Simulated assay, not measured.
Amino acid sequence: MSPDPTALAAAFGEAYQRDPEGVWHAPGRLNLIGEHTDYNDGFVLPFALARGVSVAAARRADGLLHLRSLQAADQGVVVPVDGGSLEGWAAYPAGVAWLLREHGAGGASLLIDSDLPAGAGLSSSAALECATALALCDLYGIEIDRRELALLAQRAENEHVGVPCGIMDQSASLLSRDGHALLLDCRSGLSSHVPFDPAASGLTVLVVDTRAAHTLTAGEYARRRAECEEAARLLGVPALRDVKDLAAALGSLADPVLRRRVQHVVTENHRVEAAVGLLRAGAVAELGSMLTASHLSLRDQFEVSWPEADVAVEEALRAGARGGRMIGGGFGGSAIVLTAADRAGNVRAAIEDAYAARSWTAPAIFEAEPAAGARRVI
């Protein structure tokens, strides 16, 4: 359930002593399959969640950005809309505002609310960027195609937060459609909607927030990206998406680390294409094996999984789930599990019991269905 827009509007009035001019919502995303392929110019298949980030906003005439969050302990941040430098949560909306200044955006007061757990790999940062971007565009009458707006939000995260993310998260938040996954070609930016209704097939998608928080700015994400770029350079291709003969590519690389990275990216792109074929054929249950294969590759070839995710997937499979995998950049965050709806309770209990047996913090588990993309709600 997304944040209550009426309550957020009321909270805005209390915080700023005026009514907001609107409330905008952008969803988090769950990447069904296609991990670490986006910045390699490959394919991804995410879908939007019902949960996300909402922003209540109003224009200001003094050239300032006032940023407050109901989830932040601080009293908010005030920065010039002309530009600057920030760290922490406020860098995400401020970065978007600074780039939109080039398109005519001015000062604004923003109040932010979220029901996405930060650090869970569900793209709370992109949701914050996209909700802010929609709000400022509407407030200032800025018309930007949603594909271009996704690129602007990505640029804000790259330049003003320092995370070299790909385009997937922002595209999923802005372009998704209810009851569909979004097939995104990360090179061309072209996308198409693929029907995905697990409930109609008697299936449930479980999101397992492992409670092992990740921090993409810690360096491992950037290191994996650099390794992929180095491998592409050595192979003489623009990006790993362009590797056509995997065996030949692996044979020409001396570094075993780079060989593992290439193997994951190339086979993961194939898995995305296979998953799309299964969905279009209505064979939703057969996705499970693709998810599990993706997890094993992320664990063993790309080396970005973590113990809590491995246990979640292993115990889910043992309890009868169709498949599962870690999601997100890695080293913490969430996993997804595809299971028959009538087994979901058993799968959930098996994961919770395994965590308790290891004295780990209990996971947060919830069901997910493909939801609509970012929009104005008031």
Rank of each mutant, 00 (worst) to 15 (best):
P3Q: 04
Y16A: 05
R18M: 13
P20K: 08
A26N: 03
R29C: 10
I33N: 01
Y39T: 11
Y39P: 07
F47Y: 11
A48M: 10
R51C: 08
G52N: 04
S54V: 06
V55A: 03
A56W: 00
A56F: 10
A57P: 13
R60E: 15
L64G: 12
A72N: 02
Q75Y: 05
V81A: 12
D82R: 15
G84N: 09
G95A: 08
W98N: 01
G104W: 12
A135K: 04
L136S: 11
C137K: 02
D138C: 10
L139D: 10
G141D: 05
I142G: 04
I144N: 01
E148T: 09
L152A: 06
L152T: 12
A153E: 02
Q154H: 11
N158S: 07
H160P: 03
V161H: 00
V163Q: 08
P164E: 06
G166S: 07
A172H: 05
G179E: 02
H180I: 04
A181K: 02
L184G: 07
C186Q: 11
G189P: 15
L190E: 15
S192C: 14
S192K: 14
A199K: 06
A200M: 05
V207W: 02
A212D: 08
A213N: 03
H214W: 06
L216T: 07
A218Y: 10
E230L: 15
V243G: 07
D245F: 13
L250Y: 13
L253A: 14
R261I: 12
V265C: 10
H270L: 15
H270N: 14
V276M: 12
R280Y: 12
A283L: 09
A285R: 08
A285D: 14
L287T: 12
L291P: 00
S294E: 06
H295F: 03
L298H: 03
D300M: 13
Q301M: 12
F302D: 01
E308K: 11
A312V: 05
V313E: 00
G323Q: 00
G332S: 12
G333C: 10
T339Y: 00
I351G: 00
I351N: 00
D353P: 00
A354F: 00
A356N: 04
T361L: 13
A362L: 14
I378L: 14
I378C: 05
